[in-house]
Nucleic acid binder design. Structure first.
Lengths: 341, 341
DNA sequence: GTCCGGTGTGTAAGCGCTTCCATTGATCAT
DNA sequence: ATGATCAATGGAAGCGCTTACACACCGGAC
């Protein structure tokens, strides 16, 4: 069937219904939006006509008239497919989708790669296809948040932006607290030569976790152990662990800035003949499902992903409704202790 | 900033540009769509005006006028959050998003739970907010595909529908072939008492894998081993494996209909003191990243998820363009052999 | 010089809906 | 009775864009 043919099956419009019910378009519109004063009998008549004709309002037309699309964009700022495989991000997508259920707001998934040159994405948003933007997984140098704020597009960022942007709302998990939690836990179980596999320094989440970890050690009066950097992939975790073992063969614990890298560490440790947790304790971050499936099961800092998504959408919808962006929100994390530490 | 205030910042429209450039709206429109004949100098003038004014076309208005939204829905038919955690589904979402990059078509993620009563979703689609629908993870009794086809909404299903629906396009991975591949592999490595953890019988993918597995055994002249059913979650895999060990303590191989359940089986086997692969060989299905991370690493049937997503979007876009739905597509799978078999 | 076929541009009629404003009867106090 | 008030409805003007159609203008064929 061609587009033309399909057009022949055009569904009834407000006019059709109005004519069939013998009332004006305006009245039908009022009924559909259950707005204002419509007498009970007219309402009933119109409702009946609507179901009889199988009328369903055209969202596009409505959007145009109301200047409101009732949909928001979830923008993923990851060009790299590898990083997109991150289960945390996947969880974020699902959670966001779920938190929108029942609000009548639709979720448009926008892949960052739609945006070869900066500005295109901003234009898209300004094009009026969405009422607001949820920004996930940003990198430090990303100009997008500022652009959006300046274009007065309601925006909420997941995670702390590198530099504060006035009027930019964001919802972060307490990465500093999480890093500290991990350090304190390891110290508390008697570890003294604690190494760390950090994430990419250009991501604030990674930097904050490292900061917290440092603080935890400092607070316990311990020196800062060796640090190797990864990019949140398993392979980079393996590389980092190998490096750490060379630089500090006597380490007795490792804190990895995410679970994928922790899993990599686990493998390298096993290959090197170190027992976990007897010889080396390992703590990961994110608490993705994978963490409970490894052998030994991985201790990890749990992030409230659903809550983060819920908060983000709530802030966004409120902003779309006209409220001020409001203050940043920091969500608490907790350590889930399993067998690896 | 309230909605009203924001409205005050209304961006320039076609009219604004037309007035500023001293031409008609139609001409500006032609330039924007680089359509038809516009003289070089006028085009240049208009282009300049557009950038000067920072004009960006309003997609909603365009959609209304063209009866075309340039966006498609990806509908997830899973009410249950647990199943939504399936990495295969996550991969599907990402892959679909990626395959749309560069087409100018947007992806709207629709959670099935938006659809408490059947019909709502169909209405949504007919509401003209999307040009077509991608259906993922359907269950056998789902009336949606038929409804969509009858409403003449371009639709492509991922996976084989239980009952053939005339005029319904779908893209499936060769589940029968995959099941058979797994069986043949296990037989080929000398296993003789092969058990199976099957998926929910109301999902065609699960049923087909089981069928293929049966055929593989039959072809080798082996009797069909014990079968336990799970629901594609890890926990159900554990339960199933426990049951199988009771019913057939002498089994020497297990084929699980997905990786999550295979991981569950792995744990139960270890707990039961069976060595993998020495005592019991295990093969999973899906080849999600997790499969390469278990200990021992899991052999698994690999599905071409990206290719499936690509094919689906391609078929859909073609259909939206006016082409007939076309024949179902069956994508080949392959066995990835790792340490568990 | 007239007629023809292009070309480039403008005019205006939508696309399907919302919403302001005016209109019409009632209802009520005076 | 008379005007004021109010609820219910209709009329009509948009929302910002596309696109058939008409029109003017041009060069060339006759």
């Amino acid at each position: 069937m061609s587009t033309d043919e399909r057009a022949a099956f055009r569904s009834p419009t407000l006019d059709t219904v109005a004519a069939a019910a013998g009332v004006s378009r305006a009245t039908v519109s009022r009924v559909v939006n259950n707005s204002a004063k419509v007498s009970a009998d007219v309402r009933e008549l119109v409702d009946a006509t609507i179901t009889r004709l199988g009328y369903v309002p055209n969202r596009t037309a409505r959007s145009l008239a109301k200047r409101r699309t009732d949909s928001v964009a979830l923008v993923l700022r990851e060009a790299d497919a590898t990083v997109l495989a991150d289960p945390y991000l996947a969880a974020m997508i699902i959670a966001t989708s779920r938190s929108l259920v029942g609000t009548g707001v639709q979720l448009v998934l926008v892949n960052a790669r739609d945006d070869p040159e900066h500005g295109t994405l901003a234009d898209y948003v300004r094009g009026g296809h969405v009422d607001g933007v949820l920004l996930a997984s940003m990198h430090a140098d990303d100009p997008l948040p500022r652009i959006l704020v300046e274009a007065r597009v309601p925006t909420v960022v997941g995670g702390r932006p590198e530099r504060p942007v006035p009027g930019l709302a964001y919802v972060d998990c307490d990465n500093v607290g999480g890093g500290r939690l991990a350090a304190e836990h390891l110290v508390g179980t008697g570890r003294r030569r604690i190494a760390s596999i950090a994430g990419p320094p250009d991501m604030t989440a990674a930097a904050d976790r490292l900061t917290g970890y440092h603080r935890g050690l400092a607070h316990a009066g311990l020196p800062i152990g060796p640090i190797a950097f990864g990019d949140f992939t398993r392979v980079s975790g393996e590389r980092a662990m190998t490096e750490l073992l060379e630089r500090a063969p006597d380490l007795d614990a490792v804190f990895a800035a995410n679970d994928l890298m922790a899993v990599g560490a686990l493998r390298v440790l096993r290959a090197a003949g170190r027992r976990v947790p007897e010889d080396v304790a390992v703590v990961g971050y994110d608490d993705v499902e994978l963490a409970s499936l490894t052998e030994p099961a991985l201790s990890s800092v749990h992030q409230p992903v659903s809550e983060q998504a819920d908060t983000m959408t709530e802030l966004l919808l409120r902003q779309i409704g006209g409220a001020a962006p409001g203050d940043p929100v920091l969500l608490p994390v907790e350590l889930v202790r399993r067998d690896s530490s």
